[in-house]
């Protein structure tokens, strides 16, 4: 009986979310007096997982699984969970994990708690704390099924090193045609750009920037910081920026380490979606803007003066701290 963790990888490399999920799985395993088994799909260096407390890796190498496929991945994970007699399965909350989780829950007749932010309050009954109402509240959820699935919210637990001796074995799930009834026709993904989902830092612009032509400084600021760019809803509705950058309650959630909002007022729908970020900075010329109540750091000033200055100062800082 072990705790099973799905460790997501891309082009053979584990995502940070995978290490975070592994760290968390180790926490649960300790509470249960058990150990962590990871399942990897076409990942290269699975021994890396030992650093975060994984003691066994079921390695799947299968060309048919080179592209993510929710049904097939969920089927493979269910078979791994059964083989290991896992009572707890840990996932992260990337787009792929969220896609496969409900399928896995049906396969394993398991209860599933998404957006979990901490180790279980108790393991019997199995009770976890998760966010609800788009970060406006938390909710204690207890799961009553024999097998439990936990979806760990991004950046909620962090990476915890726990050097463990790790063994690996090849795992070949038996997959059939029904696992491949959805065809991936094409994938359109910018490979050189940091995504909002993966980014540690997100720089976001609002209507205060006046027009799409003024985004150059937002991109430059993001560039200096190695950040992803995002925007408020009206900005994407007006077509200044692509929909994929819209963050907030009805857009993408942001759980970054640092969120910098430029020319964004801080409407409740915007804040709900970005509140899970650890540190929030607002740059706005209106000291009454509601964002100042939600932010950790604020600059009252004209974005067109503050941002270029900030870029210069950050460049200096980076040069001195390189």
């Amino acid at each position: 009986m072990s705790v099973l963790v799905y460790t997501e990888s891309e082009n053979g490399k584990f995502k940070k979310a995978a290490f975070e999920a592994a760290s968390y799985a180790k926490g649960i395993a300790d509470a249960l007096g058990s150990s962590v088994t990871a399942v990897s799909f076409n990942a290269e260096n699975t021994s890396e997982l030992g650093k975060y407390g994984v003691s066994k890796v079921l390695e799947i190498s299968n060309d048919k699984l080179s592209k993510f496929n929710a049904d097939a991945y969920a089927d493979a994970l269910s078979q791994a969970a059964k083989k290991e007699d896992a009572k707890v399965v840990v996932l992260s909350q990337t787009a792929n994990d969220k896609y496969l989780a409900p399928i896995l829950a049906v396969n394993l007749e398991a209860g599933y708690a998404p957006n979990v932010v901490a180790l279980p309050e108790s393991t019997d009954p199995f009770t976890v704390k998760r966010t609800a109402f788009t970060n406006k509240a938390f909710n204690m959820t207890s799961i009553s099924t024999d097998v439990k699935i936990v979806g760990l919210a991004k950046n909620a637990f962090g990476l915890k090193e726990n050097e463990t001796e790790v063994s690996s074995e090849a795992f070949e799930p038996s997959l059939d045609e029904s696992d491949f009834s959805i065809n991936v026709e094409s994938v359109d993904k910018a490979t050189n750009k940091i995504t909002i989902a993966d980014a540690e830092i997100v720089v976001s612009g609002g209507r205060g920037l006046k027009g799409p032509e003024n985004w150059e400084m937002i991109e430059e600021l993001a560039d200096v910081l190695g950040a992803a760019t995002a925007c408020s809803k009206p900005v994407s509705d007006m077509g200044w920026r692509p929909h994929s950058e819209h963050v907030g309650q009805t857009g993408k959630p942001v759980a970054a380490n640092l969120y910098i909002a430029v020319g964004i007022s801080g409407a409740i729908q915007h804040l709900a979606g970005i509140n899970a970020s650890k540190n929030k900075v607002v740059i706005n010329n209106d000291p009454e803007a509601p964002f100042f109540k939600a932010a950790d750091y604020g600059v009252v000033g004209d974005a067109f003066e503050v941002v270029p200055k900030l870029i210069e100062k950050l460049k200096e800082f980076k040069a001195n701290n390189a």
């Binding site: 787009a95 792929n96 065809n183 026709e185 994938v187 993904k189 909002i196 989902a197 993966d198 994929s244």
Partner: peptide, 15 residues
């Protein structure tokens, strides 16, 4: 034929 949003992009699927 559906378009799905993925982290950092989109993919086109058929079913």
């Amino acid at each position: 034929t559906a378009t799905r949003e993925i982290d950092g992009g989109k993919e086109t699927l058929s079913a």
